[in-house]
Design a protein around this nucleic acid. Sequence first.
DNA 1: TATGAATGAGGTTTCATTCAT
DNA 2: AATGAATGAAACCTCATTCAT
Lengths: 198, 198, 198, 198
Amino acid sequence: MDRSVTLYRHVDKQKLILDAALKLFVEYGFHGTPTSKIAQEAGVANGTLFHYYKTKDDLVVGLYNEIRSELSEATSSITHESEFITPKFKNIFIHTLYWALNNKEKFYYLQQFHISPHAAKISNEAILQQDQVQTKLIAEGIRKKLMRQIPAELIFTMFNSQLFSIYQYLTSAEFTQEEQERIINETYQMTWELFKYN
Amino acid sequence: MDRSVTLYRHVDKQKLILDAALKLFVEYGFHGTPTSKIAQEAGVANGTLFHYYKTKDDLVVGLYNEIRSELSEATSSITHESEFITPKFKNIFIHTLYWALNNKEKFYYLQQFHISPHAAKISNEAILQQDQVQTKLIAEGIRKKLMRQIPAELIFTMFNSQLFSIYQYLTSAEFTQEEQERIINETYQMTWELFKYN
Amino acid sequence: MDRSVTLYRHVDKQKLILDAALKLFVEYGFHGTPTSKIAQEAGVANGTLFHYYKTKDDLVVGLYNEIRSELSEATSSITHESEFITPKFKNIFIHTLYWALNNKEKFYYLQQFHISPHAAKISNEAILQQDQVQTKLIAEGIRKKLMRQIPAELIFTMFNSQLFSIYQYLTSAEFTQEEQERIINETYQMTWELFKYN
Amino acid sequence: MDRSVTLYRHVDKQKLILDAALKLFVEYGFHGTPTSKIAQEAGVANGTLFHYYKTKDDLVVGLYNEIRSELSEATSSITHESEFITPKFKNIFIHTLYWALNNKEKFYYLQQFHISPHAAKISNEAILQQDQVQTKLIAEGIRKKLMRQIPAELIFTMFNSQLFSIYQYLTSAEFTQEEQERIINETYQMTWELFKYN
DNA sequence: TATGAATGAGGTTTCATTCAT
DNA sequence: AATGAATGAAACCTCATTCAT
């Protein structure tokens, strides 16, 4: 009885910890953020954090996986909307960009994680599996002579760098909604020109 | 001449420290590398490190500046060879890429540094001053209608990302000297197509 | 009652740390006493000390406040026994002296602290508040023409120095209980003569 | 030739070191003052300090002895002016007080030194020898029934505490020259009353 | 599940002192 | 006599992690 009331109040402590970790990791870096500070920010006891994550590294990786899945969902769900390659390609471009712009902290965390020594700890499989969705799409585009006849991995790498640089440009200054949209469209055209079969 | 004699006797401890720091930072990250290990690797006493750099952070930033100047020299000296923009542009592209390939640790260190919280500590001026050489070149290209009529900063950002992604591709697998050259040339063509005035 | 049981099981580590700190600070001085030695002497881990006191300085000040309150209690509780000034004055004199003789280490620590740069860190208020009990008593004595018509602060300062010098004399050699009592009584007479309204 | 010129410019580095040490020790304490800072303040090289004083402790003690002699001279030279005890006593009182007021840093250093563990390192003889001048004078006063029939050591201790407390009072606030003189005279009367044979 | 006092290894930095010049 | 780069022991403090409650 009283319990049902409590249930409504109950907040998932694990979620609180992840949120706190994201915020602090992004602001102070992995090593600049003690677990005690994370617990404090999350409003839980120091030891509680270690109930959910055996070690600090576990938390770092766990948070990465969490965010990574989120990004995957945001882009992959859309990918299936069309069966043609070109619009799929555009969808990935645009949705990744918007997701990044709407989840700056999370996007930044992904960067942070990738260059950290933690990145080595995550199984390459897990990463590749997610990347392969895109790589396969590109490979198909090459095979069907819709895209340049160069290695799919090269296009994949350039494509992602392209995305990242546009993201950087968009966040380097204040743009209106319209300007932003225009830039995204223009840069998408450029990107497609870069990769399309001429 | 007297100097050459001195050089053999006198070992520059500061240089030894920088070399050791680069090696270890790249391998274990900033926080994974205790100053004691750096001193040990450099073959100097722990205190000596702090004789040259007041704090560990000072060393991190000092090393960055050192490498950054090196890269600047490697590219800027070449840039003046021609007075035309197009070959200058190509020179920067190619020399940066070769410098990166020949100085992988240093290039990796620059990445590491840029996403670290240390990056904030360096005066933006110092960075901008070096970047502006390139940004100005691009701006000139735009003005002379040799390049696309989009913001110079956008081209600058995309250009560097492009460089980085090609570097990543070249180091992701073993290529022969010839293959490497061919890839560099082809990707330069692509890059130029991307930015040139159509 | 439950409490007495707990007392036997539970050892207050903070108390152990304070005791150890007092002993070592008095013997070796603030800087001659590493925090590691304090922890060791207290039988706790090094980190435990910093669990209770953020810094070594905090410990130094914390110990001072602790002892200072003890001394205050030892004298102020007695002070209220009489409503006349003269016996109150004598009470302070005698009880301070006895407290000092029975708590030599603590009394010495107070000296040590007062001339150290730490003294500046303690809020003057805290000190004044405790001193004002005595200063007010003296001011009252002056107003009622029981004491010399000179500034209360001067009497206060001289009074404390007097106390300190007698303490020094009493501890400079071995005196029997009787001799000690006689000296205290005689010097009290001298002190009173010094300050009383003639 | 040039040399004679240099001679005039030459400043005693040992003196510079002592001056710097006094200033810094008084401000930051013994342990708060690194030898490097002393050398810097003195305008000499780090190693130079260790030419004059084998260790830092040597410097601390050396500075103490220096100041102690200065104080001795300031008072003892005057002491011989009269052959009567009473004026001698007054002379010591007044000259010590004025010396302290005119040499606040040095006087403070003496306090600092006395409660420090360094005090133990100095031979008791050296101290006693200087103190005995005063103790003997007091003993003579007692023998000649000019002073109270209590131990000379007790009077000596109380006398010095008295001096110190008056010094403290005089420096606790801003007094005019006249006020100062009046306070010194009045407190001397009080002090003499305290010790004189009644 | 949740707590937070307790731990102690390990990190950064200081600094008295040495010594080759 | 004077220098200041070099040393390395030792200090303070942090923080991931454990565990009794």
